[in-house]
Design a binder for these strands. Structure first.
Length: 900
RNA sequence: GGGAGCAUAGCUCAGCUGGUUUAGAGCAUCUGCCUUACAAGCAGAGGGUCCGCGGUUCGAACCCGUGUGCUCCCA
């Protein structure tokens, strides 16, 4: 006999042991074989980050799917890894170096900085892997990939060069989003818009005629016009004033010039219907260098561009005033100055949307800059087609297909260069004249140069300098499902051929454009096959009050601490139980509490069953009486398994978990175990014991994908298992093997009788309760029924469950008893306590009223000629049966009432 | 401003192609039990104008229209 079981389940003591065991056995490692593959690539978290609750949900969902597939005969492969996250990581490293070592990035060479960054990554980058282990994720650690691994780096460069050679990548000056804190360009997707309260400043601009003379004599209206702006600090970059050609108020401006305040630059008036006469004063200052709309206007009207900002957000020398002062500080100073000059007419509070950098939270500046871009039109078309044709299925479908399509149909070219060091450096080299050579290596670039220019004359060695910029992180992550299997660097290798396309992608809906759509693009471009068949979007994890979880609010629980408190299984349960696909979920510790209680329930059921191990009776006498419980549960188990299978197919994981939870707690613990439980110090039949161990094993197997640790532990506690007989790799017959399988034969009669037994027990217990019969008091029971054989089968169970000594069949009412009507059957409870007829009458009348109301509604339906004409035959038959049943029940109750 | 989604018990949600009951579950609440697996438990119970209005239909939580409120995405 093993050591006695602890009072409650202690997750800490078993979790690490089982995880180590699974690893030692190599259960999570996968190599191609003759089985069907089931592949998932983890959405690589930021290497320096920690897992938040959103990750926890995603990882748990993936583990459930992978474990389920592994138990269903698939060759399951889940690839872990992490992302170098260029902006976020570089920002952290810079901050670290400044704070801890007092070194600024400017002091360091590129190589030294990268050395520091890699050191930092080694030191802090392991936390997420540790967390993934603690959570119990069955990933193949031998396949761990980092987006800056050598082969991965090579793949990114290869793809860049390839797309460049295909003419899909180009370099040019465009208006981009600039992050003045990280001092880098951003893609459109990296800008988050927030509504904030700003101000609209009304500023006077002087009007002059062609000769530069003021038009009026004094304070006449035509001396100046008033322009409303939110950004007075960009006034120095104004190169035109624009009004609507249909705006009569400004018709007088034709042929006039405007003097820009502060810098006294003379600029033209342009007329364009773009301007909304109703907004502000109807006159717009045009600053092509610092606003995307102004930029487009500038292109159309051929305006010069005056860039008044430096890359750190301070005013440049081109601004002429307040040079070197930060943009927001400059705004204040400019307002003061304009006010002092009398040019500021008024200020107005104004709500506006401002772009913020997703990573640094700095206010983004639209800015013209020379960057690298990827043409998206072709790629987007293919990605659109992959979803439209059903090659990729999105779950939940309705909600995301429209967004996906809209984005792809309207996508602009992708700015892929970043002014950072941490990332894949753009493989472009420039010669002294600025000619460009794109190649995978410098040698190759030199070779290209020589092909064009011939050998350099004399002793001049050839000077080629590499582009300083790195690539957007997402330009590497979009290759993830391919390059984790070396699909780009070694195309056609056995792994990529076997594992690609992957089975499911599980991720948050917030990165549908950043990542999901782009992975589909890359997959279509390089494999001509989408990288996954299904995409499962999880919702956003919010706190109890529905707020986003964020560091600043401090409402995001620490995963390791949660696991410490509740155990990994309970945390997995807690996050999954209330996470319907695609819906946001409100996470609260209490759901982990529920998970912990469930652990305990399982544990206590184990303790109960273990007590029987030594108390088996091999003689046949006991078997018969307990047979119905076994028969019923066997069928109930089959029924629920098919239900769960169906829920898996539809990605309804939280429902599947609920179904299993209720099967174990209610059907198994509350009913089945109570039914087969021997009386105090009595033995249990060997057959029933063996069956029970079997059922329990099947239950923990069913639950294992959701709660791997406790189920593995119980599986082994139940019985000595052979080496290698572990739940993690148990093959379940009833789970399908990737094909549809006939539903197992279920004995409906047992299920019906079981349901009836439950109903009778509940009703009788209720009657005991309402009549205040003490739980310990033993009662005598009589039943008046048409179905005597059924009661023979269930009699022993019934007696035990309602604490009755006898069940007698009777043809007539039994006087001085409590009457309980269950369906068409009447029960009479004989107890010591005097019968309270008033209470009984009350109860029966209540039931009667309900039934009569119900009958009326059914009769109304059946009395409707059009219903009879139009409804399907089955529906009519059903209504007639409902009517008959109701009438019989009413009769039964009325009879009972008459006798009271 | 454009688009999408949601609204069912105190809370979180199920409710599939309209008909299985005048709507279900979990949590919370109330009542009674320390019954030798479990008080982190057991046995019961109560609780709903299915957001308002209109329509389609023999029949609507479900389909259509409209109003209101909330959420998300895009500009």
């Amino acid at each position: 006999m093993s050591t006695p079981l602890s009072k409650n389940f202690e997750p800490q003591s078993v979790e690490s042991i089982w995880y180590q065991h699974w690893m030692d056995k190599g259960y999570f490692n996968s190599t191609p074989d003759e089985r069907k593959p089931f592949t998932i690539v983890i959405p690589p978290p930021n290497v320096t980050g920690v897992l938040h609750m959103g990750h926890t949900l995603n990882e748990t969902v993936q583990d459930v799917l992978v474990r389920k597939a592994r138990m269903s005969g698939f060759n399951a492969c889940w690839v872990p890894g992490s992302d170098h996250a260029s902006i976020a990581t570089e920002a952290k490293v810079v901050q670290f170096l400044e704070k801890e070592k007092g070194i600024s990035k400017q002091q360091l060479s590129r190589d030294t900085f990268l050395k520091h960054a890699f050191e930092w990554k080694e030191k802090y980058g392991g936390i997420i892997y540790h967390q993934i282990k603690k959570l119990g994720c069955s990933v193949d650690w031998s396949r761990t990939t980092f987006t800056m691994d050598d082969h991965y780096y090579e793949a990114v460069i290869k793809v860049f060069v390839d797309l460049y050679n295909k003419g899909m990548i180009y370099r040019g000056a465009r208006m981009i989003n600039w992050d003045p804190q990280a001092k880098t360009a951003l893609s459109d997707e990296e800008v988050e818009y927030k509504t904030i309260q700003g101000k609209l400043y009304y500023v006077k601009y002087k009007v002059v005629d062609e000769s530069g003379q003021t038009t009026g004599e004094g304070n006449t209206d035509n001396d100046y016009i008033v322009i409303a702006t939110q950004r007075p600090e960009t006034i120095m970059g104004d190169t035109a004033i624009c009004v609507n050609p249909n705006d009569a108020r400004y018709a007088f401006l034709k042929g006039k010039k405007i003097i820009v305040p502060l810098v006294n630059r003379e600029v033209p008036v342009i007329f364009d219907e773009y301007v909304d006469p109703a907004f502000g004063t109807g006159a717009l200052k045009v600053t092509p260098a610092h606003d995307i709309n102004d930029y487009n206007l500038g292109l159309k009207h051929n305006l010069p561009i005056v860039d008044t900002l430096n890359d750190d957000g301070t005013l440049s020398t081109a601004a002429k005033v307040f040079v070197g002062i930060d943009r927001f500080e400059a705004r204040k100073k400019i307002i003061e100055k304009l006010a002092a000059e009398g040019s500021l007419i008024k200020e107005e509070v104004y709500e506006t949307r401002l772009g913020f950098s997703q990573r640094t939270n700095a206010v983004v500046e639209p800015r013209i800059s020379t960057q690298w871009f990827l043409k998206m039109k072709n790629l987007a078309g293919k990605a659109l087609e992959a979803v439209a044709s059903g090659e990729v299925k999105i779950h939940p479908e309705e909600r995301f297909i429209a967004t996906y399509k809209y984005w792809l149909e309207n996508v602009k070219d992708w700015c892929i260069s970043r002014q950072l060091w941490w990332g894949q450096r753009i493989p472009a080299w420039y010669d002294e004249k600025g000619n460009l050579f794109v190649a995978e290596t410098k040698e190759e670039a030199v070779h290209q140069w020589l092909m064009v220019n011939g050998q350099p004359g004399g002793n001049n060695s050839l000077q080629l300098t590499q582009d300083e910029d790195v690539l957007d992180t997402w330009f590497s992550s979009w290759l993830w499902p391919m390059e984790v299997f070396n699909g780009i660097t070694k195309p056609g290798n056995p792994d990529i051929n076997y594992y690609y396309p992957t089975s499911v992608l599980v991720t948050g809906q917030d990165i549908i454009f950043f990542w999901v759509a782009r992975m589909i693009m890359a997959g279509m471009e390089y494999k001509n096959v989408a990288p996954f068949k299904d995409v499962y979007f999880t919702g956003m994890v919010r706190d109890k009050q529905g707020r986003k979880m964020s560091k600043s609010l401090g409402n995001s629980p620490d995963l390791l601490e949660l696991i410490d408190r509740f155990g990994a299984d309970a945390v997995r349960f807690g996050i999954l139980i209330s996470a319907p696909a695609g819906n946001d979920l409100l996470f609260d510790d209490s759901s982990c509490d529920q998970g912990r209680s469930f652990n305990n329930k399982l544990w206590n059921a184990l303790k109960l069953v273990k007590m029987w191990e030594e108390r088996q009776d091999t003689s046949a006498s006991q078997i018969h009486t307990k047979n119905f419980a076994v028969q019923w549960f066997e069928n109930r188990l089959k029924e629920v398994k098919t239900q769960v299978e169906d829920q898996y197919q539809n990605f309804k994981l939280s429902e599947a978990l609920k179904t299993i939870y209720s099967l174990i707690w209610d059907d198994f613990c509350s009913w089945y175990l109570e039914w087969v439980k021997p009386a105090f110090e009595q033995n249990i039949s060997h057959e029933v014991y063996t069956k029970t161990i079997g059922f329990f094993s099947e239950l923990v197997a069913l639950l294992h994908p959701f709660m791997p640790f406790i189920t593995e532990e119980i599986y082994h506690q139940l019985k000595d298992r052979k080496d290698g007989d572990d739940l993690a790799v148990l093959q379940l017959e009833s789970f399908n093997k990737g094909q549809t399988q006939a539903t197992p034969s279920i004995d409906i009669d047992s299920l019906v009788l079981g349901a009836q037994l439950k109903e009778v027990i509940t009703s009788l217990r209720d009657a005991r309760n309402k009549n205040q019969i003490k739980p310990k008091e033993i009662i005598q029971l009589y039943v008046q029924t048409q179905n005597k054989t059924a009661y023979k089968t269930i009699e022993p169970l019934l007696l035990k469950q309602v604490n009755a000594a006898t069940l007698a069949i009777t043809e007539d009412a039994v006087p001085n008893t409590i009457t309980v009507v269950v369906g068409k059957d009447k029960f009479y409870i004989e107890a010591e306590k005097k019968v309270d007829t008033a209470a009984q009458r009350n109860q029966l009348e209540k039931d009667l009223e309900h039934l009569k109301g119900f009958l009326i509604s059914v009769e109304k339906k059946l009395g409707n000629e059009r219903f009879i004409q139009n409804a399907k035959a089955e529906v009519i038959a059903l209504e007639q049966k409902k009517k008959k049943d109701a009438e019989e029940k009413i009769k039964t109750i009325e009879e009972s009432l008459a006798l009271l």
